[in-house]
């Protein structure tokens, strides 16, 4: 099966599968993979039986933590994360939306201090997971999924 081949193609590291095709590059940004020195392959528009088109990211030599995995839940809620050891899937991590979201999304309220104070980190509380609804720790406004944008 094609999927098996993709996963076994690296010896050590992490494979993130079932990313929506248009979100693969965003996942690279969120996980800050551009600064990593090991081999990273990003594929988009692969054929998927369940999703139609999908993206895959393979990161050699790096095991993602649960916290890092949860970061991508906002844009790839159905992604599966496989930790690879010696060509085998050692662990499968289910992506889950965290209870607080730090730094990665922007408050939609232009009058929020986070959009005005220099180099300030954002923080949100998840008040509903599906569909996603969050509350800004600072201005206390609620945002629905359609208002959420990544920083």
């Amino acid at each position: 099966m094609k999927k098996e081949q993709s996963v076994s193609a690296i010896k050590e590291g992490t494979v993130i599968d079932h990313i929506p095709s248009n979100a693969a590059l965003k996942v690279v940004d969120i996980l800050d993979l551009r600064g990593i020195r090991s081999i990273i392959s990003v594929a988009t528009n692969l054929t998927s039986r369940t999703m139609g088109k999908k993206g895959i990211i393979k990161i050699g030599g790096k095991n993602l933590t649960k916290e890092e995995v949860d970061k991508i839940a906002l844009i790839a809620p159905d992604a599966t994360v496989n930790i690879i050891k010696n060509y085998d899937v050692k662990e499968k991590i289910k992506v889950a939306i965290p209870t607080t979201i730090n730094k990665i999304i922007k408050c939609s309220n232009p009058n929020c201090i986070t959009n005005n104070e220099k180099s300030m980190a954002t923080k949100f509380y998840v008040i509903r997971k599906r569909p996603l609804k969050v509350r800004c720790h600072y201005c206390e406004r609620n945002m629905d999924k359609e208002d959420i944008s990544l920083l």
């Binding site: 309220n109 009058n111 929020c112 201090i113 986070t114 005005n116 104070e117 300030m120 800004c136 720790h137 600072y138 201005c139 206390e140 406004r141």
Partner: peptide, 22 residues
């Protein structure tokens, strides 16, 4: 600005009282 008092509280070790943030 909304949320300014919360930020002030994070910056200060002295108690902050919000008298209106936006």
């Amino acid at each position: 600005l909304e949320g300014s008092a919360r930020l002030a509280a994070e910056a200060s070790s002295k108690p902050i009282i919000n008298a209106g943030d936006g």
